[in-house]
């Protein structure tokens, strides 16, 4: 903008001299995000609603399950030092603790995975990033849930 002729008064440095004319128009600004008649595709079904409800309900149940779990494992009966193979084997002999741990595993994993899914939806900007992050998330979730369930149901206290 360091032209020899001084700019007209009342025009700030931002304005300056335009490099575009009627015959050489400025390029059209592409909208970085657009909501047109065609996007987004309307999604039928209640998945988002069910996911939203699940977060609230599982959250309430998890408060009881996780706080109870932490209390039993870390505070009562000598605290963390009592935890060992024998302690776990003793608890899993009872179906009550099997159901407790199974429920906690499933709810916590699905609750956390759904939370991360919404975070990825909110923060990942490119569709490809979204796809890969979600793929990684779902793989890890399924793996952890299956492995944990397998262990709870096939746990053998006599293993040596």
């Amino acid at each position: 903008m360091s032209t020899t002729e001084s700019p007209a008064t009342g025009i700030g440095p931002v304005e300056g001299a335009s490099q575009y004319t009627v015959d050489n128009p400025a390029p059209l600004i592409e909208a970085p995000r657009a909501r047109t008649k065609k996007t987004p595709k309307s999604t039928r079904g209640n998945f988002e609603m069910v996911a939203w409800l699940f977060m609230r309900l599982s959250g309430v149940v998890l408060v009881v399950l996780v706080l109870g779990h932490l209390l039993i494992q870390l505070v009562l009966d000598g605290g963390v030092s009592k935890i060992g193979f024998a302690f776990v084997a003793g608890r899993w002999a009872s179906p009550f603790w099997q159901v407790w741990d199974l429920l906690m595993l499933w709810l916590a994993m699905l609750h956390g995975a759904n939370g991360l899914r919404t975070i990825i939806n909110d923060y990942a900007e490119r569709p490809n990033t979204r796809l890969w992050l979600k793929g990684l998330l779902y793989t890890a979730t399924v793996f952890t849930i299956l492995l944990g369930t397998l262990v709870i149901f096939t746990f053998d206290p006599n293993i040596r």
Partner: peptide, 13 residues
């Protein structure tokens, strides 16, 4: 039904 969409009310944080 329109707001039940993936980008409807459920994206509200």
């Amino acid at each position: 039904e329109i707001l039940n969409d993936r980008d409807g009310v459920w994206r509200c944080r």
